[in-house]
Amino acid sequence: MSDGDGFEPTIVVFACHWCTYQAINLAGTSRMKYPPNVRVIRVMCSGRVDPQFVIEAFKNGADGVLVAGCHPGDCHYVNGNMKTMRRTVMLEKLLQDMGIEKERFRREWISAAEAKKWVEVVTEMVEQVRKLGPLKLAEREVVMNE
C-alpha cells in the first residue's frame, strides 16, 4: 500500500460470535455495502479479546482496530462484554500514549440486529483512518530473536 493518495487502510476487527458477527452476516444477507478494508477475526465473546491481540495487530501493520461485542446487559456470556469495556477503556489510553491516534482504535457495541450500525461504524472508521493515512510510528529494524 502506498503512502500517498489512494492509501487504503486495513482495519482488523475482533467480533463476538453472538452479536457483532451476526450483524456482519445480516449485513451480508441484506446485501449492504461497506468498504472492503476490514478483516474480521471471530471470537466467541468480545471478552476473549486479549489487549495483546490489539497490540499485535498494530505492530504487524493494522491501520486501525475495532473491537465489537454485544451491548451492555446483552452479553451471551453474562458479563464478558463488561470485561471488554474495562479493558478497552484502559487500552484506549495506552494506545494514545504510545502515539496512536484515537480514531484508529474503537470499541463498539453492535447487536445481531444492527447490520446498519455495523455498516455505519465500519464506513466511518475506514474514512477517518484513510484521512489519517498510514500509522505514523518510528520504524525500527527488529533483527534478532523475535
Binding site: 497490540i55 505492530k59 501493520g61 510510528l137 518510528a138 520504524e139 525500527r140 527488529v142
Partner: peptide
C-alpha cells in the same frame, strides 16, 4: 508498538 522496517 513499532512498525517493522519496510512494512510502512
Amino acid at each position: 508498538i513499532y512498525r517493522k522496517k519496510g512494512d510502512g
